[in-house]
Every structure is written in C-alpha cells, then in structure tokens.
Design a protein around this nucleic acid. Structure first.
Lengths: 233, 233
DNA sequence: AACGCTATTATGTCTAGACATAACGAGTCA
DNA sequence: TGACTCGTTATGTCTAGACATAATAGCGTT
C-alpha cells in the first residue's frame, strides 16, 4: 500500500527544479502562472506561491508582477556562509577549545581604524589581541578594536576568561556587519603566534559591525595555512 | 489622514527583531507562541508564522515543535555570499573583461579528483586551464576539470571563445555545490600567470558541483594578492 | 528505577477565498 | 505626438479554519 501523502510545497519545488534542470523550461523562459501550476498539481495557489517564492529567493527564477516568473538567465547563486563563534567552530570539530588574551589596552583609534569605522578624531578604543587554540594548536589569532563610545561597558571587562567575540555577542548586539576575506603573508608576530614560518600564506577574515549606524567593533582574524572556509548550496 | 495599512508579516518581523535587540526577550528566552502573538498583533496565525519563520531562517531564533520558539543564544549569523560569473564580477567593477584559454586536454582523472568527486577508476575528464583578466591585468587563474561522463557535450567544445564557467551555466545546470576558500602560496606556474612573485599569498576558491548526485565539475580559482571577497549582513 | 504508551501542545503546512499592488498596454485627451 | 487615465493581469499577502507532525510530560506497567 502506498502512503499517499498529499503534495507539499516541497514536492512542487523539487518538481519545478527538475523541469528547469532538464530544460523543459530553458533559461529565460517564462514558466506557467501560479494559477495554472496550482491547477496542474491540484493544490491551492498559496502552495505554489510558496514553492516558487523559495526558488526566487535562491536565485533560480526571477519574478515580476504582471510579467510573470521566468527562469534566471545567469542565476546569481548565493552561498550561505555561516559565521559561528570560534569556540563553537572548534568544538564542532571535536577539538578542545582554549583561549588566551595576549594584550589589552585603551588607545586613541589609529588612523586606519578611524577611517574605516568613521570615528571622530581622538576617539578612544579598546585594543585586544587574543589567541584561540584547538587541541592546544593555534587556530586563530584575533586582533580586535572595540569602540568605547558605543560599548562603554567593555572598559570594565578584562577579557581574560571570556573572548571578546562571546562577550560582545551577549553585551552588544549588532544590526549590520561587513565581512571581507583575503589571503596575506604572515608577519613576524603573527607567524610566531600561529607557530608558522614568517611569510607563510595565512587566511584573513575581517569583520566590522554596527548597531544602527553606530560602529561597534572591527576585528581581524588570522588563520594558519591549511585553514579552509567551507560552505555549500 | 494616516494611511492605516494593515499590519504585514514584515511589520511583525521587525517588531520582534526590535524586542530581541532591546532585550525585552533576552537570548535564551522563550517568546510567546504563535497563537498569543497573533492575538496581540490582531492578525491570523499564518501571518505570525511567516514572520517568525523568517527570523528562524536568519538564525535569530530557534524553533522546535512543542517546545516553542526561543531567542538564539549564539545566533549563527549567516552571510549571503553571492557567487557571480567572473565576467560579471569584473564588469561590475567597471573593468574590461578578457579571457584566454591556456590549455585543454582529455585525461584520465587524477587521483585527488577521483577521490573528491567519487569518480570510477579511469574516468575521463576534461582538463582546462584559463586566465581571466580585468583591464588586461590577471584577475583569476582558473583550473578546471569537467566530468565527461556527466557532460559529454564538453568534448566538442574548444572553450577558446567562451569560458568554461559560462559554458557550463548554459549547458550543465547543477543542483548542489560545495565551496571552499583558503589561502595558499603561489606555485611557479601560477605566479608567472598572475604576474606575481613565486611564494606570494594567493586567495584560492574551490568549487565542486553536482546534478542529482552526479558530479559535474571541480574548479580551482586562484586570485592574486590583494583580492578581497566581501559580503555583508 | 526503567521502559513503553498516550495525551497534550506548539509548530508546520494546506485550503479556499479575498483584497493589495506593481506593471503593462490600450484608449483618451490636450 | 505626448501625457494621462484606467482596466487587466500576475504576483504579494492576509484570513480563518483545518489537519499533520514532532516532541514532551505524565501515566502505568514491568
């Protein structure tokens, strides 16, 4: 006996995907309207709507009122890149996490930071340097600046037990963030901390965050060679 | 006269976001059920459902049947990383795009590829090496392998005018892709092609794609130093 | 105490129908 | 010819009600 469940929006979504993949509807073609698809699959229009909307969100089709829905010519594939806490990332690998604060100082924001975060002249920031280890091996060197005007509570935190990342997650929510990833050569300090040869290729991730247009923090995270940032569609 | 439109799921979503940001519901707290929120906002439960589901998708809350919805303790922030065609990427910068095929050969899949794509022994693949330039400056070195079992048409394409990326977009759709990003040191060949010093830190992006569990292609894209991959939330 | 069944509960999804809204095209008027 | 208006159409969203499903808590049995 077949378990004849009713058709879900998922069924419809994957059937539409299949047709697009098999070029029943080639790139650029307009696919039938929601009404027609609803009739074909024997479901309510809302169900078709949900299926097609999800396809649109993932960039496989493009929708426009009145014009209809068409298969995207150059699908802008979007990978979702999840950015967990370092600790979570390390624990997810099954490794033991360890954290160490290297230095902490309240300083006048250096020029490059003033420019990038649009800080006023002589703004005070908290400068932190930390190391995150996985199974006692250096995993990430973190260099962070926190805008003390936006997060004055940071002035009273030593960051000896808890990493700035985790502390900020709990104490300073952000509404907008900007990420950048690049390759760089390890400087003398970084190389020593990460226990690699000076000049080695390191993976650098930078992040700036804001809460309602007020800059919160800028962080540079340096990973030793071999580190891979992975994602999928 | 105020245009009193009715409350949409967007209104509800942003109100919930606001409450979470202002710690009306601190991290870890359980927020009211859909029924209760629907009553509060004076809307149908389906409307609340959509709002909360979108929050769940972006990682701000976590939902579980029976247990309810709670504010994520460590919100797994998800950046959307759009992966356009190289050509589009270069043109978007306002630079002139140029493409050049360096080599093309049908070969037995090398071991590392066989393993990564789970190809049978002695599977034939098309090996391509190409260069993409922005304003005559090397922008990306592309080394690609195409599974000829999955995409036999590739055997008849010279790839002298059109890049494998664009060709595949139009001729071999994929349903799943896996990306990896890392830093590496430029080998002798790569360095020469990208016109950088050997051993320089280059940004490497790798991508594997499948169509319904059938491996399509593996590509290694190497960018010269200075390249930044940027995204935001 | 350990196990397995059952009722309960919150979310997940579907339906049928309705109105809203963007965008195009045709017809109207200056 | 050009600007404006209005109807048409496909998608966008909401409602009210229903059933589905996962997960838990509590109960009873061994």
């Amino acid at each position: 006996m077949t378990t004849d469940r009713r058709t879900t929006f998922r069924d419809i979504k994957s059937e539409l995907e299949r047709r697009i993949a098999r070029r029943v509807w080639p790139p650029g073609a307009t696919i039938p309207g929601e009404e027609a698809l609803a009739a074909e699959f024997g479901v309510a229009r809302a169900t078709v709507n949900r299926a097609v909307q999800e396809l649109a969100r993932s960039g496989i089709v493009e929708r426009k009122r009145k014009s209809g829905t068409r298969v995207a010519l150059y699908p802008v594939r979007e990978a979702r890149l999840s950015i967990p806490l370092v600790r979570k990332e390390i624990e997810a690998k099954g490794a033991a996490y360890a954290y160490s604060r290297l230095s902490r100082a309240v300083v006048i924001a250096p020029d490059f930071l003033r420019v990038r975060l649009a800080l006023p002249a002589s703004a005070e920031v908290l400068h932190l340097r930390c190391l995150h280890l996985a199974d006692r091996v250096p995993f990430q060197f973190e260099e962070r600046w926190i805008n003390l005007d936006a997060v004055p509570e940071a002035r009273d935190e030593a960051f000896e037990e808890i990493g700035p990342n985790e502390w900020l997650v709990e104490n300073a929510p952000f509404s907008r963030a900007e990420f950048a990833f690049r390759a760089a050569r390890a400087g003398r300090d970084e190389a020593a901390l990460l226990q690699v040869v000076e000049g080695e290729a390191v993976f650098v991730a930078e992040r700036m965050t804001w809460l309602a247009d007020k800059p919160i923090t800028f962080v540079r995270m340096v990973h030793p060679p071999g580190h891979r940032m992975v994602t999928e569609i």
